[in-house]
Design a protein around this nucleic acid. Structure first.
Lengths: 224, 224
DNA sequence: TATTTGAATTATGAATTCATAATTCGGTCA
DNA sequence: TGACCGAATTATGAATTCATAATTCAAATA
């Protein structure tokens, strides 16, 4: 039995931050919707104090907006915000690529190869949800391999904001094909441990993803 | 009289976040020191609730550490943390440089020229504090010129953590001379609106700054 | 009928209270 | 004298209470 670590239970507000962040990112809590403190407290079985602490933290992360004397709302995802966010994510991934080529273990690289190969299969099978899962795994694994907690923390906060753009799922087949090719190049650069190249490819990859997202949003707004 | 803006007073916790962040960054609250809620409340004239909300936010930013059932401490600045932080700051400044070359107004560039020239004078006068002020102005102005709120927000959080390394003031004369030369190159690249070049120079500039800081810390730890 | 007014209700911001974990300090025993 | 134990004190985590701002809704007015 583990007796070495002093048992510390996470504080309520931390659990709430995690739970709420998840609910906001996965769309359970809709962008723009009010966050009613009272009913949420009842649902979660906590008092308003830790909930409000959690909301302050999430507001600082940009996931909720606090309106004075009017409570909290789930932040909306605007194209303007994404336009500002993606270049920053791209810059962080670029750095991650550079660092990962220096620091990744062979096992980490092997894992990314496995996931990339899986991704290629999901693409061939036209299984979008499995593809997105693999895609996310790869980017997370790269961050992990970069071995920089400050970098990965900032990345997490920004991608949680970007992930909320759920219309991202509607990218074109052309873009999807291109993304898979890009991922194969990423893998090659990583295996060659060519940091500058991997960094550049990653930055471009993310910016391309945003361009595709813009195009698909453009399309859907015309449809609607 | 202004009647167009609805008058909103900032909430207590926001004011506290700003006040405490400032106190932590400028060293008024020492790294590693306990944050006694009760006495701070009395000093600031608020109750514990908004203070605790502020501490949660600052903990999320990494400026304080919450120890369960033992309250908050001002986070210590370790060399490991700086080693992780500076590359991220460098990546963000690189992006800022790239964006600024696209988006800066001529007036913004002119302002950076003015501040760079002032910095050169302060260097010649060996006026360190005026030099640091000018240096900070220039980096802030570049961020401003990049015109990306997500970028500047993340930059602010990370620099507030880096700024706490006050021993940074003890850089060598050689490094100081070099930094001034680098700033002149930065200005040239900006005026040429050569984004790729400015980005690269900025990244190197920041990483050089960290290397100097490491060297000076190395020196002072041997002295001590 | 549409608009406005204002009392009643509800929700929020902040202070206070309460339960419990941590710390302090005085006494005991080796 | 010095290490150890336990009661008293203090600080923290969380719930509750309180004051005030926002919202709702019915009645009054045009």
């Amino acid at each position: 039995m583990n007796i070495s670590t002093p048992l510390t239970r996470p504080s309520l507000h931390e659990e709430l931050v995690d739970r709420l962040r998840e609910a906001i990112v996965d769309g359970t809590m809709e962008p723009g919707s009010k966050v009613p403190e009272k009913s949420l407290c009842e649902t979660l079985g906590v008092s308003r104090t830790p909930l409000r602490e959690a909301l302050k933290v999430l507001a600082n992360e940009g996931l909720v907006v606090l309106e004075p004397n009017r409570g909290a709302r789930v932040a909306t995802v605007t194209m303007e915000e994404l336009e500002a966010t993606f270049p920053v994510i791209a810059a962080l991934e670029r750095l991650a690529g550079e660092l990962a080529c220096d620091k990744a273990t062979d096992a980490q690289i092997a894992h990314i190869r496995v996931r990339t190969e899986a991704m290629v299969r999901h693409h061939a099978d036209a299984d979008r949800s499995a593809y997105f899962k693999a895609n996310q795994d790869i980017h997370d694994a790269l961050m992990e391999a970069a071995d920089n907690p400050v970098l990965s923390q900032n990345y997490r906060v920004l991608s949680s904001r970007a992930k909320r753009a759920r219309f991202l799922a509607n990218i074109s087949q052309d873009r999807w094909d291109q993304a898979v090719r890009e991922h194969q190049e990423l893998l090659a650069a990583l295996e060659a441990r060519d940091g500058v190249r991997l960094g550049g490819l990653l930055q471009t990859h993310i910016l391309n993803k945003f361009a595709a997202l813009q195009a698909s949003a453009e399309g859907s707004s015309h449809e609607a």
